[in-house]
Structure formats: structure tokens, C-alpha cells
């Protein structure tokens, strides 16, 4: 995580094509091309990548805590409802008071999906660091995951709003004496859930801001490439119909390196 700017993407001037900008020098120090050995540029790029590539821990930690706590709450609510049904309270009456916990269950489900995607994201970082995957492939696997993560964040935020609506809509029922203990547990769980969802909403809003900026950075760079390659659409159409993308792996690359018989072209 970028601690200097609180997780936000630093502004970068992509119009500077010189390769000598301070930002460029900081991340990829320039070298004298006359003195370098073959592979030096790649080694430098790889070294820089390994230096800057970090796993995304915030979603993993906060999401994990949220999923764990909400599972405990759901379990207690389940036991509570089970006991209340023994008092011959109709399920329809109970339902309106457990709506918030049903919404909590949906939010937990989206959180778990988000955790799985972040796990894949972190695995990609690890693969690139250990050179088990090309940098190009790593980049694009991660770029494709940005949209899914954004979708889960937006879904969670929508359901958080639904939660707050239900919370306001259905207030506590009157207190028959025989249910006083149940109502105390229910009230405690209700407040705890509100606190949990409120904190999680703030966290997810921060995440949404971060991932939107990441997405914008990707689009900005891709559009710069599009300016260089105006016929990119044509290439993309050809690729989508003709290329086996499954062959982008390191093992294949290494195998191909030995295959000298394929390395000529007849004119």
C-alpha cells in the first residue's frame, strides 16, 4: 500500500515521453546503453517491479474480520430464532425483525467473493515476484480483476444502504416479559451489527475511491498506447478469433528458447 498518499494513485504526466522525467528516473533509473550488458533493462525492470509490487492486505484483513464477526452474529441469530419459534411466535412476525440479518448475510457473501478475488490478486503479485509468470500477463490478469473488485465493492455499498433502511424501518417490538432475555440479546446483536456495517461502509467507500483511481490509471495508459496504435481495434478483432492465449506461460517460453529450427523466415 502506498503510505505516502494514503493509498491513492500518485499523479503522473503521461504526456512526458522523454523517459527522463523525475518519476521515470525514480522507478526506472536510466542507464548508459553503451555500457550495459544484454538483459540489463529487463533485469532493472524486474528488480523495480519486485521492489514496488506489494500485496493488498487491507481488504484481506478488514474483510476477513467482517466475515468472521458477521458469521458469529448470524449463528447467534439462527439460534435465537430457533428458540423463539418454540414460543409459537409466527415466522411472519419474526421475519420483519431478522431482515437486517438476512441483508448482513448477503453482504458477507459479497465480502467472501471479494476476499477470493484479492487472494488471486495477491497470488499474481507473488508469481511475478518469483518470476513464475511474465510481467505482461501479471499486469493484465490484475487489470481484469479490478472490474470484479469494483463490482463487489459497489454491491456491498448498495446492500449496506438496504441494511440501514431496514434498520430504521423496523424498530424494536414491545417487550412481553417472557421474551425479555431474547429481546436483550436481539437488541445487542442489532446494535453490534449496525456498528459493524457502519464501519465496513466507511472502509468500502475508501476502497471504492482507491479502485476507481486504479481503473482510471489503467485507462489513461491504455489510451496513450491507443494513440500510438490507431489500428488496435483491427488487431484486437484478429486476436479474439485466432489466438490461443493459453500459451502465455513461462514453461512454454523456456521450451521455445531451445527450438532453433523455427527461427527463420523465407522471403
Amino acid at each position: 500500500m502506498n503510505e505516502k498518499n494514503n493509498g491513492n494513485i500518485p499523479p503522473y504526466d503521461y504526456s512526458n515521453d522523454s523517459g527522463d522525467s523525475p518519476n521515470n528516473k525514480k522507478i526506472f533509473p536510466s542507464v548508459n546503453r553503451a555500457q550495459i550488458e544484454p538483459n540489463t533493462e529487463y533485469s532493472q525492470i524486474l528488480h523495480s517491479y519486485q521492489h514496488i509490487a506489494k500485496k493488498d492486505r487491507s481488504i484481506q484483513i478488514i474483510g476477513g474480520i467482517f466475515a468472521f464477526l458477521s458469521t458469529i452474529i448470524e449463528f447467534i441469530v439462527f439460534l435465537l430464532v430457533k428458540r423463539l419459534l418454540n414460543f409459537h411466535i409466527p415466522l411472519g412476525v419474526l421475519a420483519q425483525f431478522i431482515w437486517i440479518f438476512i441483508v448482513l448475510l448477503i453482504i458477507s457473501a459479497f465480502t467472501i467473493v471479494q476476499l477470493i478475488i484479492i487472494l488471486r490478486w495477491n497470488r499474481n503479485v507473488e508469481k511475478a515476484k518469483q518470476q513464475r509468470q511474465t510481467l505482461a500477463l501479471t499486469n493484465y490478469k490484475m487489470i481484469n480483476q479490478i472490474s470484479i473488485i469494483k463490482f463487489t465493492i459497489i454491491s456491498i455499498l448498495i446492500f449496506n444502504l438496504v441494511f440501514f433502511w431496514f434498520y430504521r424501518q423496523y424498530t424494536l417490538p414491545p417487550r412481553p416479559d417472557r421474551l425479555v432475555i431474547f429481546l436483550r440479546i436481539y437488541t445487542a446483536l442489532r446494535r453490534l451489527t449496525w456498528l459493524l456495517i457502519f464501519s465496513y461502509t466507511i472502509f468500502e467507500m475508501w476502497q471504492l475511491n482507491k479502485w476507481i483511481k486504479r481503473k482510471k490509471a489503467v485507462t489513461r495508459i491504455e489510451q496513450k498506447i491507443l494513440e500510438d496504435l490507431p489500428k488496435l481495434q483491427e488487431l484486437a478483432n484478429l486476436t479474439n478469433t485466432n489466438v490461443d492465449t493459453g500459451s502465455f506461460d513461462r514453461e512454454n517460453e523456456e521450451k521455445n528458447d531451445d527450438d532453433e529450427s523455427q527461427t527463420f523466415f523465407h522471403n
Binding site: M1, N2, G7, I9, P10, Y12, Y14, G19, N23, N24, I27, F28, I45, S48, Y49, I52, A53, K54, K55, D56, W121, V125, L135, A136, N139, M142, K210, R214, A217, V218, I221, K224, I225
Partner: peptide, 12 residues
């Protein structure tokens, strides 16, 4: 290098 810089911008 731009694309690799993207990794730093992605803050991964």
C-alpha cells in the same frame, strides 16, 4: 516501462 509503472500506480 509505462505499463510496469502502472504496477506502482496500482499500488500493488
Amino acid at each position: 516501462q509505462w505499463f510496469m509503472k502502472l504496477s506502482s500506480e496500482l499500488d500493488i
